[in-house]
């Protein structure tokens, strides 16, 4: 019984990592959001499989909440608060070109795989794969955050980091109180609303959402 669950979890976490690379490689904002949706589906699937494998019924609730909020509510909120023209924006800029970014992503994934066994984290047998993949997702998410200059792809990078933390979390601490899981989910929704509104204000005020191009604040030294 455990073998199919572990294999299916391997598939779900594989999709999770693939979608992290997807949001690194795509040139469209809508593409970034689609990959975030895919990643959140994969996360919900992994949580659900771990719920079946570890017999922790609370995790089913977590999976359902994850499914309702991340692939559905959060993209809807972003579309509601951010202007349509920003969503349709193509050829978004990033600091390094995409092949270089993918190579760096690959290097980060290898680092995660090599360093995961060094971490003293006990995890459920069928969730052992969650740790290296979660770590890889976390590093790729942080890299996405750093390399993107547009507001929404940065936000998707940020959500990638939070998703990765949860992917590790459900394997390492499946017994986390369901109230805490709900609070994490609530937190992500608030982030989506606040950053969505901030993106709109930035677009209105600055004329673009190129965060990387904002250089008004810096130390200029003693005058």
């Amino acid at each position: 019984m455990n073998l199919p669950i572990a294999s299916l979890n391997g598939l779900a976490t594989g999709l999770f990592l693939l979608s992290a690379f997807g949001s690194l490689a795509t040139r469209q904002i809508q593409g970034c959001v689609r990959f975030f949706r895919l990643q959140s589906f994969a996360l919900a699937a992994s949580i659900f499989l771990l719920a079946m494998g570890t017999h922790v019924s609370d995790l089913v609730v977590v999976a359902v909440v994850d499914l309702a909020l991340k692939p559905l509510l959060i993209p809807w909120l972003l579309k509601r608060y951010v202007r349509g023209e920003l969503f349709r924006h193509r050829e978004i800029e990033q600091l390094l070109n995409i092949p270089s970014s993918l190579l760096i992503g690959l290097f980060l994934t290898l680092t995660a795989y090599l360093s995961a066994p060094l971490l003293p984290l006990p995890s459920a047998a069928m969730g052992q794969i969650n740790l290296p993949i979660g770590l890889a997702g976390l590093l790729v998410g942080v890299y996405t955050l750093a390399v993107r200059v547009e507001a929404l792809p940065q936000l998707i990078g940020l959500f990638g980091v939070e998703n990765a933390a949860l992917l590790i979390g459900v394997a390492v601490a499946p017994n986390l109180p369901v109230v805490a899981d709900m609070a994490f989910a609530f937190d992500m929704v608030v982030i989506a609303v606040v950053i969505g509104i901030l993106t709109r204000i930035t677009h209105e005020r600055v004329g673009s959402t190129e965060i990387g191009a904002m250089r008004a604040l810096k130390e200029v030294g003693i005058e």
């Binding site: 955050l145 507001a151 980091v161 933390a165 600055v206 604040l217």
Partner: peptide, 19 residues
């Protein structure tokens, strides 16, 4: 607005690591 971006992105990322 620039200050709010720097504040939110860096500190929310820090929050995810702390999570």
């Amino acid at each position: 607005v620039e200050a709010a971006w720097k504040y939110s992105i860096l500190t929310i990322m820090g929050g995810a690591v702390a999570l």
